[in-house]
Simulated assay, not measured.
Amino acid sequence: MQLRWGQRTHVMGVINLTPDSFSDGGRFDRPERALAQARMLVAQGVDLLDLGAQSTRPGAEDVGADAEVARLLPALQLIREAFADLEQRPLISVDTFRAPVAEAALEAGADWINDVSGGRQDPAMLPLVAAAGCPYVLMHSRGDSQTMDALTDYGAHGVVDGVLTELQRASERALSAGIRREQLIWDPGLGFAKSTEQNIALLRGLPRLRSEGIPLLVGPSRKRFIGAVLNEARAKARLWGTAAVVAQCVSAGVDVVRVHDGAPIVQVARMADALWRGSH
Protein backbone atom coordinates (compact mmCIF):
# COMPACT_ATOMS: atom_id res chain seq x y z
CA MET A 1 0.00 0.00 0.00
CA GLN A 2 1.23 3.49 -0.85
CA LEU A 3 -0.11 6.60 0.83
CA ARG A 4 -1.51 9.40 -1.30
CA TRP A 5 -0.64 12.67 0.33
CA GLY A 6 -3.16 15.47 0.71
CA GLN A 7 -6.36 13.48 0.34
CA ARG A 8 -6.97 12.39 3.93
CA THR A 9 -5.30 11.99 7.31
CA HIS A 10 -3.55 8.66 7.76
CA VAL A 11 -3.35 7.03 11.18
CA MET A 12 -0.19 5.31 12.42
CA GLY A 13 -0.63 2.89 15.30
CA VAL A 14 2.17 2.61 17.86
CA ILE A 15 3.42 -0.78 19.05
CA ASN A 16 6.10 -0.45 21.72
CA LEU A 17 8.22 -3.59 22.03
CA THR A 18 10.00 -2.20 25.09
CA PRO A 19 9.53 -2.85 28.81
CA ASP A 20 9.89 0.83 29.72
CA SER A 21 7.92 3.05 27.33
CA PHE A 22 6.09 5.85 29.11
CA SER A 23 2.60 4.77 28.07
CA ASP A 24 2.41 1.01 27.64
CA GLY A 25 5.85 -0.38 28.45
CA GLY A 26 5.84 -4.16 28.77
CA ARG A 27 2.41 -4.80 27.24
CA PHE A 28 3.72 -5.82 23.81
CA ASP A 29 7.26 -6.97 24.53
CA ARG A 30 6.51 -10.52 23.37
CA PRO A 31 6.05 -11.19 19.63
CA GLU A 32 2.64 -12.83 20.03
CA ARG A 33 1.35 -9.87 22.06
CA ALA A 34 2.71 -7.44 19.49
CA LEU A 35 0.96 -9.40 16.73
CA ALA A 36 -2.34 -9.34 18.63
CA GLN A 37 -2.05 -5.57 19.01
CA ALA A 38 -1.19 -5.21 15.32
CA ARG A 39 -4.26 -7.24 14.33
CA MET A 40 -6.47 -5.09 16.55
CA LEU A 41 -5.07 -1.79 15.24
CA VAL A 42 -5.48 -2.89 11.62
CA ALA A 43 -9.05 -4.04 12.30
CA GLN A 44 -9.69 -0.60 13.79
CA GLY A 45 -8.63 1.09 10.57
CA VAL A 46 -5.04 2.27 11.03
CA ASP A 47 -2.95 2.63 7.88
CA LEU A 48 0.52 2.08 9.33
CA LEU A 49 2.10 0.23 12.23
CA ASP A 50 5.11 1.80 13.97
CA LEU A 51 7.28 -0.71 15.85
CA GLY A 52 9.76 0.58 18.40
CA ALA A 53 12.28 -1.45 20.41
CA GLN A 54 14.20 1.41 22.06
CA SER A 55 12.35 3.76 24.38
CA THR A 56 12.95 7.44 23.61
CA ARG A 57 11.10 8.92 26.58
CA PRO A 58 13.00 11.43 28.77
CA GLY A 59 15.50 9.55 30.92
CA ALA A 60 15.22 6.26 28.99
CA GLU A 61 18.13 3.85 29.09
CA ASP A 62 19.98 3.29 25.82
CA VAL A 63 19.99 -0.49 25.37
CA GLY A 64 22.28 -0.71 22.32
CA ALA A 65 21.80 -2.02 18.81
CA ASP A 66 22.04 -5.74 19.59
CA ALA A 67 19.30 -5.63 22.23
CA GLU A 68 17.13 -3.42 20.01
CA VAL A 69 17.40 -5.85 17.09
CA ALA A 70 16.69 -8.82 19.38
CA ARG A 71 13.50 -7.15 20.59
CA LEU A 72 12.43 -5.97 17.16
CA LEU A 73 12.94 -8.72 14.61
CA PRO A 74 10.78 -11.53 16.04
CA ALA A 75 7.75 -9.23 16.26
CA LEU A 76 8.42 -7.56 12.91
CA GLN A 77 8.75 -10.88 11.11
CA LEU A 78 5.63 -12.30 12.73
CA ILE A 79 3.57 -9.22 11.87
CA ARG A 80 4.86 -9.08 8.30
CA GLU A 81 3.98 -12.75 7.74
CA ALA A 82 0.53 -12.34 9.27
CA PHE A 83 -0.45 -9.60 6.81
CA ALA A 84 1.47 -10.84 3.77
CA ASP A 85 -1.62 -12.07 1.91
CA LEU A 86 -3.75 -8.98 2.45
CA GLU A 87 -4.43 -7.01 -0.72
CA GLN A 88 -4.22 -3.78 1.28
CA ARG A 89 -1.70 -4.72 3.95
CA PRO A 90 -0.66 -2.08 6.48
CA LEU A 91 2.68 -0.37 6.02
CA ILE A 92 5.24 -1.15 8.71
CA SER A 93 7.44 1.59 10.07
CA VAL A 94 10.35 0.99 12.45
CA ASP A 95 11.16 3.62 15.05
CA THR A 96 14.96 3.63 15.40
CA PHE A 97 17.89 6.04 15.28
CA ARG A 98 20.48 3.32 14.60
CA ALA A 99 21.57 2.33 11.08
CA PRO A 100 22.24 -1.36 11.94
CA VAL A 101 18.73 -1.68 13.35
CA ALA A 102 17.23 0.09 10.35
CA GLU A 103 19.16 -2.15 7.97
CA ALA A 104 17.99 -5.32 9.73
CA ALA A 105 14.41 -4.02 9.79
CA LEU A 106 14.38 -3.23 6.07
CA GLU A 107 15.81 -6.65 5.26
CA ALA A 108 13.01 -8.20 7.36
CA GLY A 109 10.34 -6.33 5.40
CA ALA A 110 9.85 -2.94 7.05
CA ASP A 111 8.59 -0.21 4.72
CA TRP A 112 9.55 3.02 6.54
CA ILE A 113 12.25 4.20 8.91
CA ASN A 114 11.13 6.61 11.62
CA ASP A 115 14.21 8.34 13.09
CA VAL A 116 13.66 10.45 16.20
CA SER A 117 17.14 11.91 15.81
CA GLY A 118 16.66 13.07 12.23
CA GLY A 119 19.96 11.47 11.28
CA ARG A 120 21.97 13.09 14.09
CA GLN A 121 22.79 10.08 16.24
CA ASP A 122 24.17 7.65 13.65
CA PRO A 123 26.09 9.04 10.67
CA ALA A 124 25.44 5.80 8.76
CA MET A 125 21.66 6.27 8.83
CA LEU A 126 21.30 8.78 6.00
CA PRO A 127 23.40 6.83 3.44
CA LEU A 128 21.51 3.66 4.39
CA VAL A 129 18.12 5.27 3.78
CA ALA A 130 19.39 6.78 0.54
CA ALA A 131 20.45 3.36 -0.71
CA ALA A 132 17.19 1.73 0.41
CA GLY A 133 15.00 4.41 -1.18
CA CYS A 134 12.36 4.00 1.56
CA PRO A 135 10.24 6.71 3.16
CA TYR A 136 12.13 8.38 6.01
CA VAL A 137 10.46 10.18 8.90
CA LEU A 138 12.90 12.92 9.84
CA MET A 139 11.95 14.11 13.31
CA HIS A 140 13.04 17.30 15.01
CA SER A 141 14.79 16.73 18.31
CA ARG A 142 17.74 17.98 20.31
CA GLY A 143 20.15 16.01 22.44
CA ASP A 144 19.00 12.58 23.59
CA SER A 145 16.74 11.05 26.22
CA GLN A 146 19.08 12.17 29.00
CA THR A 147 19.58 15.79 27.87
CA MET A 148 16.60 16.96 25.80
CA ASP A 149 14.60 18.51 28.64
CA ALA A 150 17.40 21.05 29.15
CA LEU A 151 17.52 22.08 25.47
CA THR A 152 14.32 24.10 25.09
CA ASP A 153 15.79 27.54 24.33
CA TYR A 154 14.75 28.55 20.82
CA GLY A 155 15.84 32.18 21.12
CA ALA A 156 13.97 35.31 20.19
CA HIS A 157 12.36 33.85 17.06
CA GLY A 158 10.53 31.15 19.00
CA VAL A 159 9.90 27.45 18.68
CA VAL A 160 8.10 27.40 15.30
CA ASP A 161 10.91 29.23 13.50
CA GLY A 162 13.50 27.20 15.39
CA VAL A 163 11.97 23.85 14.52
CA LEU A 164 11.44 24.86 10.89
CA THR A 165 15.04 26.01 10.53
CA GLU A 166 16.43 22.86 12.12
CA LEU A 167 14.21 20.60 10.01
CA GLN A 168 15.39 22.41 6.89
CA ARG A 169 19.03 21.94 7.89
CA ALA A 170 18.49 18.27 8.66
CA SER A 171 16.76 17.85 5.31
CA GLU A 172 19.71 19.46 3.54
CA ARG A 173 22.02 16.92 5.20
CA ALA A 174 19.69 14.11 4.11
CA LEU A 175 19.60 15.34 0.52
CA SER A 176 23.37 15.71 0.49
CA ALA A 177 23.62 12.06 1.56
CA GLY A 178 21.57 10.99 -1.46
CA ILE A 179 18.07 10.81 0.02
CA ARG A 180 15.45 12.06 -2.43
CA ARG A 181 13.11 14.82 -1.34
CA GLU A 182 10.09 12.59 -2.02
CA GLN A 183 11.37 10.13 0.62
CA LEU A 184 11.18 12.74 3.38
CA ILE A 185 8.39 13.09 5.93
CA TRP A 186 8.78 15.74 8.62
CA ASP A 187 7.87 15.24 12.27
CA PRO A 188 8.12 18.39 14.45
CA GLY A 189 8.87 16.24 17.49
CA LEU A 190 6.23 17.12 20.05
CA GLY A 191 7.65 16.63 23.54
CA PHE A 192 11.27 16.39 22.40
CA ALA A 193 13.15 19.42 23.76
CA LYS A 194 9.92 21.40 24.04
CA SER A 195 8.02 22.76 27.04
CA THR A 196 4.25 22.52 27.35
CA GLU A 197 3.85 26.07 26.04
CA GLN A 198 6.22 25.38 23.15
CA ASN A 199 4.32 22.23 22.15
CA ILE A 200 1.10 24.23 22.00
CA ALA A 201 2.78 27.00 19.99
CA LEU A 202 4.17 24.39 17.61
CA LEU A 203 0.71 22.87 17.11
CA ARG A 204 -0.65 26.32 16.29
CA GLY A 205 2.21 26.76 13.84
CA LEU A 206 1.69 23.51 11.94
CA PRO A 207 0.31 25.23 8.81
CA ARG A 208 3.65 27.01 8.44
CA LEU A 209 5.55 23.73 8.56
CA ARG A 210 3.11 22.07 6.16
CA SER A 211 3.48 24.94 3.69
CA GLU A 212 7.02 23.78 2.93
CA GLY A 213 5.52 20.99 0.83
CA ILE A 214 7.01 18.03 2.70
CA PRO A 215 4.46 15.56 4.15
CA LEU A 216 3.99 16.06 7.87
CA LEU A 217 3.65 13.45 10.63
CA VAL A 218 2.73 14.43 14.19
CA GLY A 219 2.84 12.17 17.25
CA PRO A 220 0.84 13.71 20.11
CA SER A 221 -0.45 10.52 21.68
CA ARG A 222 -0.79 10.59 25.48
CA LYS A 223 2.18 12.93 25.81
CA ARG A 224 3.29 14.78 28.90
CA PHE A 225 2.21 18.23 27.67
CA ILE A 226 -1.38 16.96 27.31
CA GLY A 227 -1.20 15.71 30.88
CA ALA A 228 0.06 19.10 32.00
CA VAL A 229 -2.81 20.95 30.32
CA LEU A 230 -5.43 18.50 31.62
CA ASN A 231 -3.81 17.95 35.03
CA GLU A 232 -3.87 14.24 34.20
CA ALA A 233 -0.91 12.18 35.41
CA ARG A 234 -2.15 8.91 33.88
CA ALA A 235 -0.90 8.55 30.31
CA LYS A 236 -3.73 6.23 29.26
CA ALA A 237 -6.32 8.73 30.51
CA ARG A 238 -5.22 11.37 27.98
CA LEU A 239 -7.26 10.05 25.05
CA TRP A 240 -9.57 13.04 24.71
CA GLY A 241 -6.70 15.49 24.95
CA THR A 242 -4.98 13.49 22.23
CA ALA A 243 -8.16 13.59 20.15
CA ALA A 244 -8.30 17.39 20.41
CA VAL A 245 -4.71 17.63 19.21
CA VAL A 246 -5.45 15.27 16.32
CA ALA A 247 -8.34 17.51 15.25
CA GLN A 248 -5.94 20.47 15.23
CA CYS A 249 -3.51 18.41 13.14
CA VAL A 250 -6.21 17.62 10.57
CA SER A 251 -7.23 21.26 10.34
CA ALA A 252 -3.59 22.16 9.65
CA GLY A 253 -3.23 19.61 6.84
CA VAL A 254 -1.08 17.06 8.67
CA ASP A 255 -0.72 13.86 6.66
CA VAL A 256 -0.12 11.25 9.39
CA VAL A 257 -0.93 11.16 13.10
CA ARG A 258 0.94 8.68 15.29
CA VAL A 259 -1.17 7.35 18.17
CA HIS A 260 -1.66 4.48 20.61
CA ASP A 261 -5.49 4.38 20.48
CA GLY A 262 -6.62 3.08 17.09
CA ALA A 263 -10.42 3.06 16.88
CA PRO A 264 -11.26 6.42 18.53
CA ILE A 265 -8.54 8.32 16.68
CA VAL A 266 -9.49 6.79 13.34
CA GLN A 267 -13.01 8.13 13.98
CA VAL A 268 -11.69 11.55 14.98
CA ALA A 269 -9.54 11.72 11.85
CA ARG A 270 -12.37 10.66 9.55
CA MET A 271 -14.81 13.17 11.01
CA ALA A 272 -12.25 15.96 11.02
CA ASP A 273 -11.34 15.13 7.42
CA ALA A 274 -15.01 15.48 6.46
CA LEU A 275 -15.09 18.90 8.11
CA TRP A 276 -11.76 20.36 6.95
CA ARG A 277 -10.76 18.36 3.87
CA GLY A 278 -14.21 17.59 2.49
CA SER A 279 -13.38 13.88 2.31
CA HIS A 280 -15.64 11.17 3.70
Score class of each variant (00 low, 15 high):
M1P: 00
Q2L: 14
L3W: 02
R4P: 00
Q7V: 11
H10T: 09
H10F: 14
H10A: 08
G13L: 04
L17F: 03
L17S: 12
P19I: 05
D20F: 06
S23P: 00
D24A: 13
G25D: 04
G26H: 08
R27M: 10
R33S: 11
Q37L: 11
R39T: 08
V42G: 08
V42P: 08
V42D: 02
A43W: 00
D47S: 13
D47I: 07
D47Q: 07
L51H: 10
A53G: 14
A53P: 01
S55P: 10
T56E: 04
R57M: 01
G59N: 07
A60P: 14
E61F: 04
V63S: 09
V63D: 10
E68K: 14
A70G: 09
L72W: 01
A75R: 08
L76G: 12
L76D: 02
L78M: 15
R80K: 15
F83V: 05
F83W: 06
D85L: 07
L86M: 11
E87W: 01
Q88T: 08
P90E: 01
L91H: 05
I92Y: 01
V94L: 09
T96H: 12
A99R: 07
P100I: 05
P100T: 13
V101E: 08
A102C: 11
A102S: 07
E103N: 13
A104Q: 15
A105C: 11
E107N: 14
D111M: 07
I113E: 06
D115S: 08
S117K: 13
S117I: 07
G119K: 05
Q121D: 15
P127T: 10
V129T: 09
A130N: 14
A132L: 03
P135V: 07
V137P: 00
M139Q: 15
S141F: 01
S141D: 02
R142C: 10
M148N: 10
M148G: 08
G155R: 06
H157F: 02
E166F: 04
S171R: 13
A174Q: 03
S176G: 15
A177F: 05
G178F: 03
R181Y: 00
E182R: 14
I185T: 09
I185Y: 02
D187N: 12
G191F: 04
E197M: 03
R204Y: 09
G205C: 12
L206C: 03
R208F: 00
E212I: 06
L216Q: 03
L217R: 05
V218Y: 09
S221N: 06
R222M: 02
K223H: 05
R224F: 01
F225Q: 05
G227W: 06
A228Q: 15
V229P: 00
L230R: 08
E232C: 12
A235G: 05
L239G: 13
A243C: 12
A244R: 04
V246H: 01
A247C: 10
V254G: 05
V254A: 04
R258W: 02
V259G: 10
D261Y: 01
D261A: 08
G262Y: 00
A263N: 02
P264Y: 04
P264R: 06
I265G: 05
Q267I: 00
A269M: 04
M271F: 11
D273M: 09
A274T: 13
H280G: 15
